[in-house]
Simulated assay, not measured.
Amino acid sequence: MNLALFDFDGTITHKAMFGDFIRFAVSRRRRLLAAPVFGPMLLGYKLGVVSGNTIRARVVNFGLRGMPADHANEMGQRFSREILPTVLRPMALERIRWHREQGDRVVVVSGALNVYLQHWCHEQGLELICSRLEVVAGKLTGRYDGLQCVGAEKSRRVREACELRHFPLVYAYGDTEEDLDMLGMAHKKYYRWREVA
């Protein structure tokens, strides 16, 4: 049995889904209130002066703070069922199928939010390591539960969950700099669906 590690956003899907989920789950009123605050931040992100971690943390705090966890879970289920199937890469699904036919252990390792990605992975029968939202007294706090699962945190969590020495081959698939640490752990690395040394 080998190990196959798949990033989600931009690798299994055609695009990043964080913003789509926020637009799906957060009320229009709250999004309108956020526009003046996040306009400059988004520009800074596009110019490379604001990190993805920073902007995601601020959006989660502003958009999801105080939302009942049950409601967030329900929105995540709907998003997984209604939206995610429209953005999946057939090539990625075929590769996941191939690994499963080989008897490999397949793990999605993503910075995406657990409130929607856990439902998709459960439906597909895939293991999941991802960014988790903190819940206190039945409501989202607007903070992450632990670190965002990007960059070095991806490889740290994989090592925590999987005994790498038990796998003859480790495959990893990613598409951004946030995946490079994870790709660095693998024997066979695919960046934007091209094998790299």
Score class of each variant (00 low, 15 high):
159 R>V: 04
42 L>F: 15
152 A>T: 15
49 V>I: 13
40 P>H: 13
183 L>E: 02
33 L>W: 04
160 E>L: 09
37 V>N: 05
81 R>G: 00
46 K>L: 11
7 D>F: 02
117 L>G: 03
131 S>H: 11
59 V>G: 03
63 G>L: 04
108 V>N: 00
9 D>G: 04
23 R>Y: 15
139 K>H: 14
30 R>Q: 14
101 E>S: 09
183 L>M: 05
33 L>Q: 06
149 C>L: 00
2 N>P: 05
87 V>D: 03
17 M>C: 12
86 T>F: 01
137 A>F: 15
127 E>C: 02
154 K>L: 10
58 R>P: 03
108 V>Q: 02
129 I>G: 07
137 A>E: 15
134 E>A: 14
157 R>V: 11
111 G>W: 06
128 L>G: 07
165 R>D: 06
62 F>G: 04
51 S>H: 05
191 Y>K: 13
4 A>M: 07
82 E>H: 04
169 L>N: 12
113 L>M: 15
77 Q>K: 13
115 V>E: 11
28 R>V: 13
120 W>V: 03
23 R>V: 12
23 R>F: 14
76 G>L: 06
144 Y>A: 11
103 G>H: 01
160 E>P: 06
91 M>S: 14
42 L>V: 13
150 V>P: 02
37 V>S: 06
179 D>A: 11
176 T>P: 09
155 S>D: 13
145 D>M: 13
120 W>C: 00
119 H>C: 00
109 V>G: 01
146 G>H: 13
105 R>H: 10
83 I>A: 02
177 E>H: 12
119 H>I: 00
168 P>K: 06
96 I>N: 12
110 S>W: 00
114 N>S: 15
95 R>N: 09
173 Y>K: 13
45 Y>H: 14
57 A>D: 09
63 G>W: 00
44 G>I: 11
196 V>S: 08
174 G>T: 10
134 E>I: 05
189 K>N: 08
16 A>Q: 09
26 V>W: 00
136 V>P: 08
59 V>S: 03
190 Y>V: 10
158 V>E: 08
117 L>K: 02
171 Y>I: 07
12 I>L: 02
57 A>T: 14
179 D>R: 11
128 L>Y: 02
133 L>P: 14
80 S>Y: 03
44 G>Q: 07
60 V>Y: 01
21 F>W: 01
2 N>L: 03
141 T>G: 00
76 G>Q: 01
156 R>V: 09
103 G>Y: 09
64 L>Y: 00
92 A>Q: 07
